[in-house]
């Protein structure tokens, strides 16, 4: 069970979706990233997650070797 005390819904969701990787992607701060969750073994090893904005409703695989530093639809997660 995840302790929810004092967390905003967004912070809680971040705990549920605790990512597998760390990198310099701006996407980590972005509302639209759906990260590869810690411990999941299925998705290809070289992505940090999926961008749910740029090609929505399709998901764009955000590669971990192409670090996104700037993005035209970036939205700070709340």
């Amino acid at each position: 069970m995840i302790e929810a005390k004092g967390l905003t819904p967004r912070q809680f969701l971040d705990k549920v979706l605790e990512p597998e990787k760390e990198s310099d992607h701006i996407c980590w701060q972005c509302e639209f990233l759906k990260p590869v969750i810690k411990g999941s073994s299925f998705p290809p090893a070289d992505i940090i997650g999926w961008c749910m904005k740029i090609h929505w409703p399709y998901y764009w695989c955000v590669a971990d070797f192409n670090v996104v530093k700037k993005c035209y639809v970036f939205k700070q997660k709340g």
């Binding site: 992505i47 090609h55 409703p57 399709y58 998901y59 764009w60 695989c61």
Partner: peptide
């Protein structure tokens, strides 16, 4: 489409 952009098709 995946091969070109790395986009995963979703349900619609």
């Amino acid at each position: 489409m995946y091969g070109r952009f790395g986009i995963v098709r979703q349900r619609w």
